[in-house]
Design a protein around this nucleic acid. Structure first.
Length: 168
DNA sequence: TCAATGATTGAG
DNA sequence: TCAATCATTGAG
């Protein structure tokens, strides 16, 4: 993907990431579910202020933001928008193409791909790449999952009827 | 320092 | 419905 793909509003990027192909080392997977996190979003890590953890969200789009949640799961985000604008897109689920693994949840897909906090801030386009994949038939936009604040915002996108989307 | 908590998951 | 489990955060 071109760098200008990432430097747009996270809602647009979240929508357009669906159906794209992740290539990391020898693994390939299609993105089937995403969530957008924007400025002035009560559910975003960067809602209140900049901290050591969320500082990569303030960088220019086209990087990874990875952090540990609940003490056991690495969640992977793609940083979006221009430098100084804290926003990102959480990758919630992918469809594995050339391997077998459970990937129907944000903590599971990072485990399956081998993504961890060491990848925080990594530039997309080297070891970790995103390529043009398929064109999703039907995209659903709905409310987000698992948040205590800001859960009412319809910032979640997924490919309709895909068996790999999260949430039971 | 220290206690609270969370963009989750799998088991009961 | 609940516990596992720990980096990050904000208060003391």
């Amino acid at each position: 993907m071109n760098k200008s793909f990432y430097t747009r509003d996270s809602l647009i990027v979240a929508r357009e990431l669906l159906g794209k192909e992740i290539v990391y080392k020898d693994k390939e997977a299609l993105i089937v579910e995403t969530e957008a996190y924007t400025t002035n979003d009560p559910g975003s890590h960067a809602y209140k202020k900049r901290t050591k953890r969320n500082s990569v969200m303030y960088e220019e789009g086209g990087r990874l933001y990875v952090y540990l949640c609940y003490g056991m799961y690495n969640l992977m985000n793609i940083v979006t928008d221009k430098k100084g604008v804290p926003s990102a897109v959480l990758i919630r689920a992918v469809e594995p193409l050339n391997f077998e693994a459970k990937t129907n949840g944000p903590g599971l897909l990072t485990k399956a791909l081998g993504i961890s906090r060491e990848h925080n801030g990594l530039e997309i386009g080297k070891e970790f790449m995103i390529k043009k994949g398929i064109k999703p038939r039907v995209v659903v936009q709905t409310t987000r999952v698992g948040l205590s604040r800001g859960s009412e915002l319809p910032y979640r996108f997924y490919i309709k009827d895909n068996p790999y989307i999260s949430r039971k």
